[in-house]
Amino acid sequence: MKDNNSSRRKFLKLGLAAGATALIGGGGKVLSAVSNPGQASGETGEKVKLLSPDGTLVEVDKGHCHACPATGKEARQGIPNKKMVMVIDLARCRNARKCLEGCQSMHHLPPKIEWIKFFLLRDSKDTSPYWFPKPCFQCNNPPCVKVCPVGATFKRTDGIVLIDNDRCIGCKFCMAACPYSSRVFNWGSPDQEPLPADKKYSPETSWPQKVGTVGKCDFCPDMVRQGKLPSCVTSCPNGVYFYGDKNEDTVTNGTETVRFSEIVQQRAAYRYMEELGTEPGVYYLPPVNRLFDYKVGFQDLKPEEIQLYKKEANLSE
C-alpha cells in the first residue's frame, strides 16, 4: 500500500493517466484511498497544465510557473514533437472581429496594433464575396525568415515563426518579403501596458512590443505550453478557428474537436496562395453552405470602411 501511495502522488503531480489503471487494478480494491497531496512551501495548490521540455503534458503547481514562456535558446527551438496548425472555416465567419479583440487583450496590444486582418475577398466577378480573417500563416518555407539579416525572426520545430524584438534591427525586410502582409511595424511607441517587473520578455509572448521593431501574430506558443488555446480561437463566437497539433492529427475550436486530416480532406481545405511556395501552416475551409450572408459582416462597420470593402471586392451598390 505504501508503494501505491507514492505512485499515487506522482500521478497527481504529473497527471499521467497511465499509472492509474495499474494503481486500481493492482490495489484490487474498487475505491482506493486518495489523500490530498501535501502542500509544500511556495505551492499554491493550484495546478496548471504545462508541456515539459520533452513535449509531454505535465501538471505543475502554479507557484512554480514563472518560467511558463520559454526564453533564450529554448524559445528559438520550439516545443518538441509538435507541429501547430490552424484551420479557418470561412463558412462560419461573419467579420465579428472578436478574435482580434481577444488577440489584442491577450497580447496587451492597444487597438491600433492589429495582428489579425480582415478582408472581403471575391475571387471573380461572378462569385460572391466572403469574409477572410487572416493571422500570420506560420509558413513552412517562410520568405520572411529567409531574408532576416540577423535571425531576429525564426522558424521553430513546432512550426511557429516568431520574432525576437530584442534582436530585430527594424530593417523591415521581412515585411517586404512576406507576401501576405502579415507583419506590422512599431513605427512609434507601441503605447502598450508595460510588462510587470517580475516578468521577462520572451519571443513566445511577444510582450512588450518595442518601438522600431516588427510584430505579428505569434500563434501563442506560451498558451500551447500551458495546454491552452490561443485567444482568437476561444473568443470567436462562431467557432471559425480550429487550432491544434498536426502531430496529434487533431484540431479544436474550443467546443468541437475533430481530426485534422478528416476535416481538411472532407471539406476541401486549401492554403492561401499556396502557389507562392510558402507552404502556409494555416488552412482555409472554403465558404460553402455559409452560416451568414456576407452583408451581415457590414453591421458594425463605419460607412467608409464598408465603402472600402466594397471597392476591394468589386461590389457596385
Binding site: P149, V150, I169, C171, V211, G212
Partner: peptide
C-alpha cells in the same frame, strides 16, 4: 540612408554578431 530607414539604429552591431549570410541585406 539604409541606417536611416532602420527602426533600430543602435542595434547595427547585431549585423556583425548575428549576421546571417542568407540575407541579401548582409
Amino acid at each position: 540612408y539604409i541606417f536611416l530607414s532602420m527602426g533600430r539604429l543602435e542595434r547595427v552591431w547585431h549585423l556583425f554578431v548575428y549576421g546571417r549570410i542568407q540575407s541579401p541585406i548582409v
